[in-house]
Structures are given as C-alpha cells and as structure tokens.
Write a protein that binds this DNA or RNA. Structure first.
Length: 274
DNA sequence: CTAACTCCCTGATAGC
DNA sequence: TGCTATCAGGGAGTTA
C-alpha cells in the first residue's frame, strides 16, 4: 500500500498532533507483525516519553523521543497509522495504540501484518543494517542521472525492477514505478543497460514529478490507504497506467497493456513508451 | 555478484 | 449459497 508519497503524507499529518506530546501508555495486541512487537522496549523507552520529531527514510517513519529512543515504523502493504479520539472502540487489526496527553490515540492498524515496529534504545542502539544499504531518496540531492547510470552499470534487469530496488532508489513501489515510466516514456521491460544519459534524465525528472504530484494529492488510495486523519488520498484519479489494462491511454488512445515482471503486475502504453 | 522466485498474512473478488 | 483460486500497494530470504 504505502509508498513514498503515502508515508510522507502520514509523516506530515503526524507532526502537528504528535510532536511535543507525551505518550502516556502503549497498548499492544497479541498478534505478531512482520517482526515481534517489542513490548518490553515500548514500556521501557516509549511509555511516559515525549516525542521530539517525526522523520522519514525510504518507507520507514522514525519517531524520535526526547530521551533518545527511536521508534522505527514500517507500514508494509496494509499498515495504517492514524489518530482517533479517546474512547473510540478498538477495531479489528488495531495492533498498537499510543495514548497521548492531548486526548488523542495514535493507532497502528494492519490487516495483513506485513508492517513492523522496532524500538531503538537511547544512546547505544543504531539503525538496523538495512538502513546503511538504502539507495538515494528520489526527492533528495543524490538522485541524478549520473548516479543511476553508475548503479546500472553491468546490470541487466528491467528498468521497472531497477526503480523498485531499494538499494538503488527508495520509496518507489509498484504503483509509482509504473506511473513514472509512463511519464518518462519508457517501457517497463527495457533493460537498464540500454538507456542513454538523456533517458536517465527523463527517469529522474519523471520520478520527481510523479512523486511530488502524488504527495500534493495526499497519496493514492486503491483499497486500504488512509492518511493520519483517516482520509483517503486522491492520486488514484491521476493514474495514467496502473490498473488500467485494456483501457485507452489518456495521451494517445492506445490500449494499455499488462505484463508480469518478477511476479508484479506492470502496466504501460505500447505506443507512448519505448 | 545479479536476478528471479517464494513466502509472510488477510480479505476482496471472480468463476464454477 | 458456498467453495476454490487468484490477486493485492512490501520486503527479506533463498535459489539458480
């Protein structure tokens, strides 16, 4: 579900109602998420603590506490992180509830439980190894055509799989990979070895354009996604190819095609994308 | 090393 | 109505 625009939208919604708050109590369900829920650490380092900031790296949210502890949250496919007023009955798949001192409750809800929550203890605990291996932020300064050309050297995989590789560039999942390649005019099956410098420039520009527009729309809601106020995004209205198999290309009228790449549905316009 | 496949989990939907 | 198969936005681990 949540790719970069959705996670960023949630981050921006969390800030005004979470930063500066004290987390009075954390209540967890008995189910495990992708990783076991660190109940003891939540009690030791998060309960009673005050939130200092909310950052994002890739699709991870980093909630930093004044005591130096860090909550590392990932929403997986169906995770939600949203506020409820105090007293709202617990719903199905509400796995973690943070009771705040402003009469709100922040809930981590996840139907499929592919999401995760980790707590880094103050001082001594660093981010997991995965963070050191993450690639460029697509909206950051290091994401450039030369960078992508360097990362693509001696590689053969299709450009779509390359864009979804978090060691290359983070935050781009199946929806936005398809949309970016439409905007850039590149077939998802194109091997990365065949792209010219000018084409890589289109990948960079297309990525920024699509992701920024999606953030401006509050993300894409296909089925589960809601922002921190439990509201849908509306970038799904702007989708050019994702999920549009057999429909007319909004640019040229050709029929949108579907292929499967590494087990993921991939959509493109056979005449606009080369 | 790269690239592709498999699996974690639940729910919606399609087809019989 | 009910059963079964397929698919879904992520990512880690395994295999070739």
């Amino acid at each position: 579900m949540p790719e970069l625009p959705e996670v960023e939208t949630i981050r921006r919604g969390l800030i005004p109602r979470l930063v500066g708050c004290t987390i009075i109590r954390v209540v967890t369900s008995n189910r495990r998420l992708r990783l076991p829920v660190p109940r003891a650490k939540l009690k030791a380092w998060v309960e009673g603590g005050q939130v200092k900031s909310v950052d994002r790296r890739a699709k991870y949210l980093l909630v930093r506490m004044n005591n130096g502890a860090v909550l590392v949250l990932h929403l997986g496919m169906t995770g939600r992180l949203a506020f409820f007023t105090n007293g709202t009955p617990r719903g199905p798949h509400d796995h973690i509830r943070f009771f705040l001192d402003n009469s709100l409750e922040l809930r981590f809800n996840d139907v499929r439980r592919f999401g995760s929550i980790q707590v880094l203890a103050p001082e001594n605990e660093k981010l997991p190894q995965i963070f050191a291996d993450l690639g460029a932020e697509p909206l950051g300064p290091n994401f450039s055509a030369p960078y992508l050309m360097k990362m693509a050297r001696k590689r053969t995989k299709p450009i779509k799989n390359f864009l979804m590789d978090a060691k290359v560039v983070v935050g781009i999942g199946n929806i936005y990979a398809n949309e970016i390649l439409f905007v850039a005019g590149i077939k998802p099956t194109r091997g990365v070895g065949t792209l010219t410098r000018a084409t890589w420039e289109r990948v960079v520009r297309g990525s920024r354009e699509v992701l920024e527009q999606a953030i401006a729309c509050g993300g894409t809601t296909i089925s589960d996604y809601v922002n921190s106020s439990n509201e849908m995004g509306y970038f799904q209205c702007e989708l050019k190819v994702y999920g549009r198999t057999g429909e007319a290309c909004k640019s040229c009228g050709s029929m949108i095609s579907r292929v499967v790449l590494s087990g993921r549905a991939s959509f493109f316009c056979p005449s606009c994308q080369k």
